[in-house]
């Protein structure tokens, strides 16, 4: 027990290397926020495309469903590796501009942006399914009432359906955000020195795994309050929609 404790909870090592782990965690936070923002947006776009009505839009619906199925079925790690390799190759061949193939926008490194794109592609697909559940949970009469007033399908979605759907799915979206935040660790394969890679570097150099522990703490400081927030939101919704059976 003491050996275990000394191995993982070497507090003097932790305080010595706090700055490095914090720097790595800052990358994790930035990646989560930027990737999370674009995933939320892309997921909403996908879910709306998937709900377009009529025969004309059938190909759009099929393409969207195909995309969502594919990206939910492929490991994120594979998306990260495949995307970065593909873009870098195309850029080096000159097929696409270098600024797009090897993105280094706003002073962030190219692994960072490959990570943002890969997270958005994959988590957008997950979140599209969450939004879809929310859209389908809005009673049919809402669309009928909107259309009977002369609103187009698009207006009804924008002003009536989506605002109600988003409120219903805030808790599951927060859950997906927690998962996304943890999955940012996968981008370390591209050499991005985020929280996990920092721990790994410290271990390689000093043969001390307490850097991992410190990283784990930092994740928990953010994810546990988020998980509580999710539960609180769900409890709030339950209280509003059903009084419960005594």
């Amino acid at each position: 027990m003491e050996v275990f404790f000394n191995t993982y909870f070497d507090f003097s090592f932790m305080s010595e290397h706090l700055d490095e782990v914090l720097a790595g965690f800052w990358i994790t936070i930035k990646l989560s926020l930027v990737g999370g923002f674009f995933s939320l947006l892309w997921g909403l776009i996908l879910s709306v495309l998937r709900q377009l009505p009529g025969k004309i839009f059938a190909p759009v619906r099929w393409l969207t469903i195909g995309y969502i199925d594919a990206l939910r079925g492929i490991p994120l790690l594979l998306v990260i590796l495949g995307l970065s390799a593909g873009l870098a190759t195309l850029a080096s061949e000159g097929t696409i501009p270098r600024e797009i193939g090897i993105p280094q926008w706003f002073g962030e490194s190219d692994p960072f942006w490959y990570g943002v794109i890969a997270l958005t592609l994959t988590y957008g697909a997950y979140m599209a399914e969450v939004y879809r559940a929310g859209i389908e949970a809005v009673p049919r009469g809402q669309m009928e009432a909107s259309r009977s007033l002369g609103m187009s399908h698009g207006q009804a979605m924008r002003f009536v359906i989506v605002p109600q759907a988003v409120r219903k799915v805030i808790p599951p979206l927060l859950n997906d955000f927690i998962a996304l935040m943890k999955d940012t660790a996968l981008i370390s394969v591209l050499g991005l020195v985020e929280t996990v890679q920092t721990g790994s570097d410290l271990y390689s150099e000093f043969f001390n795994p307490s850097g991992y522990t410190l990283g784990a703490f930092m994740f928990l400081i953010v994810t546990i309050p988020l998980a509580r927030l999710v539960d609180w939101q769900i409890a709030k919704q339950d209280a509003k929609f059903e009084r419960g059976i005594p």
Partner: peptide, 13 residues
């Protein structure tokens, strides 16, 4: 053409 429904269908938000 105005329509009123059995289940009201007001926009709750």
């Amino acid at each position: 053409v105005g329509m009123v429904f059995q289940s009201f269908n007001l926009f709750p938000h």
